[in-house]
Simulated assay, not measured.
Amino acid sequence: MGTATTATTAEAATTDTRTGNLPEITDPTKVAPKDARQLSRLFFDQLAVLEEGTPEHAYARNTLIEMNMSLVRFAAGRFRSRGPEEMEDIVQVGMIGLIKAIDRFDLSREAEFTSFAIPYIVGEIKRFFRDTTWAVHVPRRLQEARVQLARATEELSSRLGRTPTVKELSELMSLSEDEVREARLASNGYNSSSLDAAIGGSEDGESALQDFIGNEDTDLALVEDFHALAPLIAELGERDRRIIHMRFVEELTQAQIGERLGVSQMHVSRLLSRTLARLRAGMMVD
């Protein structure tokens, strides 16, 4: 690859360009960002003419990757709040974005590589979050619809001065109203909290999330009562079962029941009281 040269400045790169050789950089990761910008242009010039698969092409490509790792660290810096363990994954994913940017960069566009690479790096990191950080797995179309929904909601809220309706969102997003509702529902799967998580501000300081959500399901007790009551009703006579049905299913008054049976309201009242007392006694046996 020509005369071995340790290049850490743009001046060294300029000298080697006239010879048509690439400078040999001992440690590309230690090249200053300012020098890396100028050296990158030299390496991209050569990368465009070198045959893919040759040692020279591999050297140029690998050096570009190592020289521009500072771009990955810069882009990943905005996500530093996610903790050191996750930052390692973020940097690795950002490197994939950097490699894609290097493989797709075209000098003829006369754009700075840094301006071209940052969106690739950040986009790859965001895609990583989208695909791996959902608390509940949802289809990718719903993950993408969630992002679209957030943007549409923000745009319409600022434009209308209020929370947009489902119909307004569906028109802006070019989706059906059912799809908008589905995207809203899918958004609930993005984050999750443990039911045992402590809630700040509670009087005892130890209350958990589960202490504040949900209610006792009284219908469960009703189900048990219905199962216990069914055989007791089956043991009643036909007239008593009919009175129970008219009073509690058809919701007739005692007077209306008396008219149907041809008896007085007082007689219906006595029959009903006697039957209910029998059923209560049967329910208490267990």
Rank of each mutant, 00 (worst) to 15 (best):
6 T>G: 01
7 A>S: 13
8 T>H: 12
15 T>P: 01
15 T>M: 08
17 T>Q: 09
19 T>F: 12
20 G>I: 01
20 G>E: 11
25 I>V: 10
29 T>M: 02
31 V>R: 00
41 R>E: 11
57 H>A: 06
58 A>D: 14
59 Y>K: 09
61 R>Y: 11
76 A>Y: 00
77 G>D: 13
92 Q>C: 06
95 M>P: 00
96 I>A: 03
99 I>A: 12
103 D>H: 09
103 D>G: 05
104 R>I: 02
104 R>F: 02
105 F>G: 02
116 F>T: 02
121 I>N: 05
123 G>P: 03
127 R>K: 15
129 F>C: 05
136 V>S: 13
137 H>R: 15
138 V>G: 02
141 R>K: 12
143 Q>F: 00
143 Q>R: 12
143 Q>E: 12
144 E>A: 09
150 A>W: 04
151 R>T: 06
160 L>F: 03
163 T>N: 13
168 E>A: 05
188 N>F: 15
189 G>Q: 07
190 Y>W: 11
193 S>R: 15
194 S>F: 10
196 D>F: 06
202 S>M: 13
203 E>S: 14
203 E>I: 11
206 E>H: 13
208 A>C: 12
214 G>C: 13
216 E>S: 11
217 D>I: 03
222 L>Y: 02
229 L>G: 03
233 I>M: 08
234 A>W: 02
235 E>K: 15
237 G>I: 01
242 R>V: 01
248 F>N: 11
249 V>D: 10
253 T>W: 04
262 G>V: 04
282 G>C: 07
283 M>Q: 15
284 M>Q: 15
286 D>G: 08
